[in-house]
């Protein structure tokens, strides 16, 4: 029994450096910043309530409430703002600005934990409130931010450690969080591959062709592919 326990703990608690955490922190922060900048002009249009945007944010949030009332959403912030007479557009702009600020703090590692939690919260609010518009990339960003928020921040390349002299955490915890992330990605890729294996189109190459030629993934001219 002790041997099994030792094997399990050796697997899940290897002593690791925190370089992976630096890569995850900076990578996710840049990813969120690019997401914010890329969608800035349409942010309010995509996330506005009924009658003001492309598709109603209220609709997504009603569907979300059907799942659970505790899932973060922009509607919470809009409701709080409306009590103080703040317009929906201003709240949505403020949420975008907060997300950008949190990601900027995260990229340099200043107030790392608060920055990671804020980035996760505002990103999750935006993704869940725009539920019908969300896709795989948003999901993976949420996964990454969730792990980052719980992981043993700060890392040795953060401003927190270099200038604010915040102490580093147990290196075994670094190993644990890295291992969980690895196992999670293994599961994701395994099931992604397994589901594709069952489709005849993926076995004869037709699905690959369709993936390259369908809008909006048709970045390579089909003439070249043929």
């Amino acid at each position: 029994m002790q041997t099994i326990w030792k094997r399990v703990t050796d697997f899940f608690f290897p002593i690791q450096s925190d370089e992976w955490l630096t890569v995850l922190r900076i990578g996710l922060a840049i990813q969120v910043l690019l997401y914010c900048l890329a969608i800035r002009s349409d942010w309010n249009y995509l996330l506005a309530g009924t009658g003001r945007g492309l598709i109603s944010r209220d609709l997504s949030e009603v569907a979300l409430s059907g799942e659970s009332s505790f899932i973060p959403r922009l509607g919470w912030l809009v409701n709080i703002g409306s009590r103080f007479g703040i317009s929906e557009a201003l709240i949505l702009n403020a949420a975008w600005f907060c997300l950008v600020c949190a990601a900027c703090f995260l990229v340099i590692g200043l107030f790392s934990r608060t920055a990671a939690t804020s980035t996760w919260f505002f990103h999750l609010c935006a993704v869940k409130s725009g539920g019908l518009l969300a896709y795989g990339m948003d999901n993976f960003t949420t996964i990454g931010l969730f792990y980052l928020m719980l992981s043993p921040l700060p890392d040795q390349f953060s401003v927190d450690y270099r200038f604010r002299k915040v102490t580093l955490r147990n290196p075994q915890l670094q190993g644990l969080f890295r291992r969980v992330l690895q196992v999670h990605l293994c599961i994701a890729y395994f099931f992604g591959g397994l589901a594709k294996c069952t489709g005849p189109g993926w076995l004869n190459g037709n699905s690959l062709w369709r993936a390259f030629t369908n809008t909006p993934f048709n970045v390579i001219d089909p003439e070249i592919l043929v």
């Binding site: 799942e67 899932i71 999750l124 795989g136 099931f191 589901a195 993926w202 699905s207």
Partner: peptide, 26 residues
């Protein structure tokens, strides 16, 4: 309610079968 909230907060409420079993039309 709690389990759904956790799944959504962790980003693990959906599977990973993108484009499976075939790539849908546009």
């Amino acid at each position: 309610q709690g389990l759904s909230a956790y799944l959504n907060a962790a980003g693990i409420e959906a599977g990973y079968g993108f484009f499976a079993p075939h790539v849908p039309g546009t």
